[in-house]
Simulated assay, not measured.
Amino acid sequence: MTSPYPPLSDEDWPQELADMLAGFAGGLNVYRTMAHHPALLRAWADLREHVVNQTTLGLEFSEVVILRTGWQLGSSYEWHQHIVRGRKNGLSDVRIARLSGPIIDIKGDDAVLATAVDDLFNERQLSQDSQTALVALVGKSGMFDLIATVGFYSTLGYILNSFGTPLDQDIAGELAANPLRP
């Protein structure tokens, strides 16, 4: 697929985003694609900081939520990007692979998180059972952060899927050298 909105090169980077090129925005194809709309990317930065770096879910649980969201969206980019990030944050290949399968195969805390993600996709809300389980696992703020994470990565997934954004070369290389081995 030839995208009408491919990731912008450094040469094509919008002047109004010059201050963001050396940071997170210039580092990933998803944000280089989003740079086609400079005002959106600039507004995105504060939410990204919270969802990615300040979440009360913690890095490990956050990756579980992101992987299940990427799988639900059918976003190859998000799924593959977060295989690598999930490994860096303590997830085994077996654990990652389970997140792309039936909920019955997902174990322990991951099942609580994945069920909540599935609730949001399938029912458009958290069930009472998921709310109770989430508050017990990650607290009230964690429950809200889970919802925000699903929404954040859903928006990214829609952008990625709509415009065929290619996987970042470093991630593609890492996965070629070290494929998922469930």
Rank of each mutant, 00 (worst) to 15 (best):
Thr115Leu: 15
Leu175Tyr: 01
Glu49Lys: 13
Thr55Phe: 08
Ile83Met: 08
Pro38Asp: 07
Met1Ile: 06
Arg48Gly: 09
Thr55Ser: 13
Met20Lys: 13
Ala176Lys: 08
Pro6Ser: 03
Gly164Val: 03
Val64Cys: 07
Thr69Met: 00
Leu73Pro: 00
Glu63Pro: 10
Asn89Lys: 09
Pro179Met: 00
Leu134His: 04
Asp168Met: 03
Gly164Trp: 01
Asn29Gln: 04
Val117Arg: 10
Leu180Ile: 02
Arg87His: 13
Arg181Phe: 15
Leu41Asp: 02
Ser100Asn: 08
Arg95Asn: 13
Tyr31Thr: 09
Gly86Ala: 04
His36Asp: 09
Asp105Tyr: 14
Trp79Leu: 07
Ser9His: 07
Gly142Asp: 04
Ser100Lys: 14
Arg48Val: 05
Lys107Gly: 15
Phe144Thr: 15
Pro179Asn: 00
Val84Lys: 07
Ala133Met: 05
Ser9Leu: 12
His37Gly: 04
Phe144Tyr: 15
Asp12Pro: 08
Leu17Lys: 08
Leu57Phe: 01
Ala111Leu: 06
Val52Ile: 09
Glu60Tyr: 08
Phe24Ser: 10
Arg98Ile: 05
Thr165Cys: 04
Glu49Tyr: 07
Ile171Thr: 13
Asn161Pro: 06
Pro179Leu: 00
Arg42Cys: 06
Asn122His: 13
Leu160Phe: 01
Leu175Trp: 02
Ser3Trp: 03
Leu120Tyr: 11
Met1Ala: 14
Ile159Met: 14
Leu120Ile: 10
Phe61Ser: 10
Arg181Ser: 04
Glu16Pro: 08
Ala39Asp: 05
Pro6Asp: 02
Val135Met: 13
Val52Met: 06
Tyr158Cys: 11
Thr132Ile: 09
Trp71Gln: 06
Arg48Tyr: 12
Gly108Tyr: 04
Arg124Glu: 11
Tyr77Asn: 01
Pro102Arg: 09
Thr132Phe: 10
His36Lys: 00
Glu49Asp: 11
Gly164Tyr: 02
Val94Leu: 12
Ala116Ser: 11
Asn161Leu: 01
Ser92Tyr: 05
Leu8Ala: 09
Pro182Arg: 05
Ser100His: 07
Ile96Trp: 09
Val150Phe: 00
Gly173Ala: 06
Ala148Val: 09
Asp10Asn: 15
Gly142Pro: 10
Gly70Ala: 00
Ile66Trp: 00
His36Arg: 02
Ser76Glu: 14
Lys88Thr: 08
Ser154Lys: 04
Val65Arg: 00
Ala111Cys: 15
Leu41Phe: 02
Gln125Trp: 12
Leu73Lys: 01
Asp118Asn: 14
Ile159Pro: 01
Tyr31Glu: 05
Gly173Glu: 15
Thr2Pro: 06
Arg98Ala: 15
Val64Asn: 10
Pro102Gly: 12
Gly157Glu: 02
Ala133Thr: 07
Leu137Val: 11
Phe121Gly: 02
Leu180Val: 05
Asn53Thr: 05
Asp129Cys: 11
Gln54Glu: 10
Gly151Pro: 03
Asp19Met: 13
Leu41Cys: 02
Ala45Met: 15
Ser130Cys: 07
Asp105Lys: 12
Glu16Asn: 10
Tyr158Val: 07
Glu63Ala: 11
Arg42Phe: 07
Leu167His: 03
Leu137Ala: 13
Val150His: 00
Ser92His: 15
Pro14Ile: 10
Phe163Lys: 06
Gly164Phe: 07
Arg68Lys: 00
Asn161Met: 03
Ile66Val: 02
Phe61Gln: 11
Asp129Gln: 04
Glu11His: 12
Leu126Val: 06
Leu40Ala: 10
